[in-house]
Write a protein that binds this DNA or RNA. Sequence first.
DNA 1: AAAGTACTTGCAACTTAGTTGCATTTAGTT
DNA 2: AACTAAATGCAACTAAGTTGCAAGTACTTT
Lengths: 141, 141
Amino acid sequence: MNRLEEQKARELLNYANLRRTRPRVAVLAVLLGARRPQTADEIAAKLAPPAPNRVTIYRILESLLHEGLVHKAFLEERTWHFELASNCTESQCHPHFTCTNCGETNCMTEITLPMTKSPGKGFVIQRQRVQLEGLCPKCNV
Amino acid sequence: MNRLEEQKARELLNYANLRRTRPRVAVLAVLLGARRPQTADEIAAKLAPPAPNRVTIYRILESLLHEGLVHKAFLEERTWHFELASNCTESQCHPHFTCTNCGETNCMTEITLPMTKSPGKGFVIQRQRVQLEGLCPKCNV
DNA sequence: AAAGTACTTGCAACTTAGTTGCATTTAGTT
DNA sequence: AACTAAATGCAACTAAGTTGCAAGTACTTT
């Protein structure tokens, strides 16, 4: 658990008007240090024991989500994955790339796609989300 | 349960070398008649009683998936949604639009996006999936 | 048409991921 | 130091999907 990330976590929480409780700081610090979207269980595994209760982690993620500090990345699994909202604009987040061979997910922050145009007919497109699938450098022989 | 769809379902199953059992034909017929991705429960609700066992429906969907007749549409819910694979190319399916107000999902078959280019670095992009979010005609006042 | 067999189905029990209610604790305030 | 709203932990619950196994059925072979 990096000190720098804890410090940053405190600042973000303060800014968002959320209490800086120990579990909340720790969860946010994990997300600050993560290079890919994390599930509640993955976060729990990275916390220094004694880990907070499962329910607490879910509720912390909910509060972070509510204040817009993190958001859900929808991957091809049933489980929810969370990541910092900081790299994303109002209308879209970076694409996520999942390797069909090893299953690992990478954040493709260097890719920015043009916003899809509405087909008319009364549809207003506000956000778009892109998932990519293929072979990652490790698996691309 | 439309006769035409049952007929079409039989043909597809035959073509895919899957046994044309009563539950399988019925499930596929529902998907043939659906205008948006369906969950296992939604499918079950549309079957003429006596509905097949929950487990059976999951296994049928699995077999259809395995033979490439249907695929999963990843929406912003935990639950899996299935739809016919027929409208889709190798590299992408039509985008799905979910209304942030009423929650309904629409298939945007009229939209086709250019394929995202790989950022290099050894990544090979094989498929892309796009989710859209905004207001649907009903909710766009 | 009967028999055989591999594929399917149904049932019960289980797992995973997330939720709810309530009593206890704690961060930030007075 | 006392107060209070917010946060936490625990136990019990729900939703969605899975597994093992016995019984049934579609298609094949004779």
